[in-house]
């Protein structure tokens, strides 16, 4: 192994990845936590033999046992199974609800940064209007209008959170525009779409990617909150939010696990994603 030096520039890409992970414990731990949770969600049928929606009135509100790893809820459903299948729903939804605004927001932001002028002014005023409303008020009213369910959640979140991506990308694109970067591409005779999508966007996306990680965390919060209020995932489909809201009445009665277990799952997942976000921020810092 040779000494790593800031003067060395050429390393194999796998070497770069290994070096990145070794110098970046945040990213490593974040990926580990989220990786394990994802794996558990994907392999849910292998990790439990219970159906998360199957009720068993002979064994309600049981404590952890060999049969039921985390016990059962008031309808006798296996908590471990509900946790795993709930992860599937929440993580999938949170990720999808990031992809859409990421793509829409980044593209709009790049166009604003590139063209400027009236297009930029109009789009940014619309963005101002969207963020003028309190976030949760807007989400809840949108879901209320669109109706419960997965697709309304995604649409509601997308309508609001593209703004952040657009603003991030626009600002970065404007910084690049102020240098000779764009001039050099124009003089080269490259077309506008190529300049925007091949050169401008790839060079400014890193900030948006970092933000996307914290956005997934926020989305999990939104989905769980909506479900908790009965506006999101409709029971009996398991979801960490409706698990919490269903467990709440028993909290006062001294049965804490029903509410605590999904809450801890939300916290651990969010922590892992935040670590990935911070780690990526370090790793993606553009070297010039």
């Amino acid at each position: 192994m040779t000494a790593l030096s800031p003067f060395e520039s050429r390393t194999s890409s796998s070497g770069v990845l290994r070096k990145m992970l070794r110098n970046n414990p945040q990213l490593l731990f974040g990926l580990l936590i989220v990786g394990v949770i994802l794996l558990m969600a994907i392999c849910a049928p292998l990790l439990t033999s219970y159906d998360p929606t199957e009720q068993d009135f002979l064994s309600t509100l049981q404590g952890p046992s060999a049969d039921h790893l985390l016990g059962t809820d008031n309808l006798g459903r296996d908590l471990w199974a509900r946790l795993l299948y709930g992860a599937r729903v929440d993580l999938f939804l949170a990720s999808v609800a990031v992809v859409l605004p990421f793509i829409i927001g980044s593209t709009i932001g790049a166009l604003c940064g590139y063209f400027g002028g009236w297009f930029d002014t109009i789009v940014m005023r619309i963005a101002d209007i969207v963020v003028a409303f309190p976030f949760y008020v807007l989400v809840i009213s949108l879901v209320f209008i669109l109706g419960n369910g997965v697709s309304s959640i995604i649409v509601a979140i997308s309508i609001i959170s593209w703004v952040a991506y657009a603003r991030i990308i626009r600002a970065e694109a404007m910084v690049l525009s102020a240098t000779n970067f764009m001039d050099a591409l124009h003089v080269g005779g490259l077309g506008v779409p190529r300049i925007i999508f091949r050169h401008l966007m790839p060079n400014v996306l890193s900030q948006a990617i970092v933000y996307a990680m914290s956005d997934i965390v926020a989305n999990i919060g939104v989905i769980v909150t909506l479900s908790y209020f009965g506006l999101g995932i409709v029971p009996p489909t398991p979801d960490w939010g409706n698990m919490m809201s269903e467990g709440q009445p028993f909290f006062a009665g001294g049965i804490y696990t029903l509410m605590l277990i999904p809450a801890v799952a939300v916290i651990v997942t969010s922590y892992g994603l935040s670590l990935i976000g911070d780690g990526l921020a370090t790793a993606l810092r553009v070297k010039r």
């Binding site: 240098t179 000779n180 970067f181 001039d183 050099a184 003089v187 080269g188 005779g189 490259l190 077309g191 190529r194 091949r198 050169h199 790839p202 060079n203 553009v286 070297k287 010039r288």
Partner: peptide, 29 residues
């Protein structure tokens, strides 16, 4: 009519190899 800029750090796309930078122009033209 081509141009060379003052700042050699800003005017080159840092993600592309020299070959990619040059090849792109050759292809476009």
């Amino acid at each position: 009519i081509q141009m060379v800029f003052q700042d050699p750090y800003a005017s080159l796309d840092p993600r592309m190899t020299v070959w990619q930078l040059l090849d792109e122009l050759l292809s476009v033209h």
